[in-house]
Simulated assay, not measured.
Amino acid sequence: MDDSKSFLIFGSIFGGIGGIFAVIGIIFGVNTHSFVGTALSTQGTVIDLELRSSTDSKGRSSSVYYPVVKFAPSSGEQTIFKSNTGSNPPAFTKGQQVEVLYNPQKPNSAMINSWLELWFLPAIFTGMGSIFVLIGGVALVKSFPHLLNFKCK
């Protein structure tokens, strides 16, 4: 197989996968932006840090702490939710006050108002997707050598 065919295949695969990742990241970002724009804000308290441990195929274990938050939405009824984002070391401490964003129709879908909780996934997917698209695009351009041999007058 010649080089231009290899670059064409590589660029198409990388660009395609990157495009999918970038679109997913943009969708996550639009959904997050919409949630933030319509959510109500209140104060909550981190009441626990749930430890989740896992072991990979090589027997290495890792642990991540997920904050559990209690808050009172505008309905007045105490609500407890577990964050979807964990970290090690823990990003929050028990008893810490945090800003909570929530949908009044679904208070259990609340989120801590932090960059990690709201924007990490959209940023990672969009950023990695964009890098893959760029790498794939360069490979695709290299797969058409006649495009690179133009002369300026």
Rank of each mutant, 00 (worst) to 15 (best):
M1E: 14
D3Q: 11
S4C: 06
K5Y: 14
K5L: 13
S6T: 06
I9N: 00
F10D: 00
G11D: 03
G16E: 07
G16M: 01
I17E: 05
G18S: 03
I20W: 06
F21T: 03
A22C: 15
V23K: 02
I24P: 04
I24Y: 08
G25H: 08
I27H: 02
F28N: 15
G29E: 09
V30I: 15
N31W: 02
N31I: 00
T32C: 09
T32V: 14
F35V: 01
V36T: 02
V36I: 11
V36N: 07
G37D: 10
G44E: 05
V46I: 12
V46W: 10
I47K: 09
D48W: 10
D48Q: 11
D48H: 14
L49C: 02
E50W: 08
L51E: 15
R52F: 11
D56W: 05
S57M: 13
G59W: 08
S61H: 11
S63C: 00
Y65F: 15
Y65C: 08
Y66K: 04
Y66M: 07
P67V: 06
P67Q: 05
V69W: 06
K70S: 14
K70G: 01
F71T: 06
F71V: 03
P73S: 03
S74W: 00
S74I: 03
G76H: 05
Q78G: 04
I80V: 15
S83P: 05
T85D: 00
T85G: 01
G86T: 07
P90Y: 07
F92S: 00
K94P: 08
V98I: 10
V98L: 04
V100E: 04
N103I: 07
P104V: 09
K106Y: 13
K106Q: 14
N108K: 09
S109F: 11
A110W: 07
M111E: 04
N113L: 05
S114I: 08
W115S: 10
W119Q: 10
L121V: 10
T126M: 11
T126N: 02
G127C: 03
G127H: 05
M128D: 02
S130V: 06
F132G: 11
L134H: 03
G136C: 10
A139D: 03
V141C: 02
V141W: 09
K142Q: 14
K142W: 13
K142I: 04
S143R: 01
F144Q: 12
H146P: 02
H146E: 12
L147D: 01
K151M: 04
C152D: 04
